[in-house]
Amino acid sequence: MTKPTRTSRTRDEDKLDTTTSPESAQLYDPDNQDLSQGRTSSLNRWDTPWFNWKLISGTAIVGIIVLIGIFGRFLWDTELVYVGKCPLNLPPVGFENSRGQTGTWSHPFGTENSGRDMLALTIIGAPNSLLVGFVAATIGIGIGILLGFISGFIGGLTDDLIRLLAGITITVPSLLVLIIIQSLVEQIGLFTMATLLAVFAWPGPTLVIRGQVMSMRESGYVQMARLSGASPLRIMFGEIMPNLLPYLAASFIGSVSGSILAAVGLETLGLGPQRVPTLGGTLYFALEAAALLRNMWWWLGIPIFILSLIFMGLLLINLGLDEIANPRLRKATE
């Protein structure tokens, strides 16, 4: 048996090897323990499905926005985000507004017509929008996991009731109801808003998780756990749930996107938090003041750009997690 040497291998063979599992690599070269172990450890490190460029780049985009929110507060005066703290209608640095005023480094992203600083709005508003999405999605997915597992695992009347409730909630026009609720609530804060959004964020995950649980409960390891006398709770959350984690993570990120979109929709209609800076709220004020017509592109452009970044980041994370959860999808993209 000829020992394959590193130098004699082609680039194609290398590529093939990277898709080979560590076990098969060991079987391939049992005599060359040092080399194979070195290569195996190398493959172990990089051949993990979690090393997914979509997931990494998406996480990086969202992470940067979060970091800006965290550290920006120490580097910039965030009090400038409130009404009347800056000169009005200043353009970003390097630009000129319709009155001939040029941008200054005191307000590098410019200001709007109530004297709010756009950089401070970015630092405070972008993480606020993410926060609403994450809180609403956490509540929604939390309820979804609980009800989905109960419904899928227990079945019977409980399943029927949960399915009926989720089905009814899905058919309710959520934006209309949210608009009515928002108009009735005395003061809207970020968490009030997130809670309202969560009311409509649970049925989707519930039904999907239910389906997954139903397919898994008949699998061999679950049957084995049953035979071993494991309690239903142990089976649901100790056996099935760990296998659903990538899938749940993808659902969660999808839910975050949906919640942010709903929040921005409400805010753009003027139904968001009154004094808390948000990207949607900024869009509302810009639209009310005919910002585009006034050539104040930065007023609309900056929040739209950041929202696009957020949605792009979340989409990439979602796609990455999807590929991790679904090996077929991963194979197809390789």
Binding site: N89, S98, R99, N113, A289, A290, L293, R294, N295, M296
Partner: peptide, 8 residues
Amino acid sequence: TLGAFEAI
């Protein structure tokens, strides 16, 4: 508003 009038 003033800004819109200036623009038109």
